[in-house]
Amino acid sequence: MKCGYKRVISSFIDGELGGEKAVFLKEHLKECAACKEEIEVLKSIKSAFSCEPDYKVRGDFTETVIASLPERRANFREKLDWWMDEVLPLGKKLIPVPLVLTAALIFFIAFNAVTPNFITLEEVLLSNHFTLEEEIVLTDARLSDEIALELLVK
């Protein structure tokens, strides 16, 4: 067969040839004996397959398959439960440890931040929020002689 329609004919007998191509092939078959014969041969081969008998799958096939399945998936729920019951409570018991450490750290940092630096008397005088006397008492400022004299005058 020299037409080069082999592949198309194979698809054609499977009913897989698209409309336009099928029409084209049918037209061609009217005038090509070789292709007609090819179709007969392929159909003959195709029909030989349908002679295969059906057979029964063993009755206990499904049971055998189910028996072979691992418990892995079935255990997923149990594993989840195990995590909920065993691991999480353990976690709760352990929570205070990092909690205390964290609290201590926060406290330490906060304390350092809040602890006032000694301010100089000049800063006190500039701030004007407090009276000089109050600031001196509050800040435990060391007085220079000048300021001490000033206070004394007041």
Binding site: T62, V65, I66, L69, R73, A74, N75, F76
Partner: peptide
């Protein structure tokens, strides 16, 4: 079956 129901897989 994914949840472990073997009869569904059956």
């Amino acid at each position: 079956a994914i949840e472990g129901d073997k009869s569904a897989f059956g």
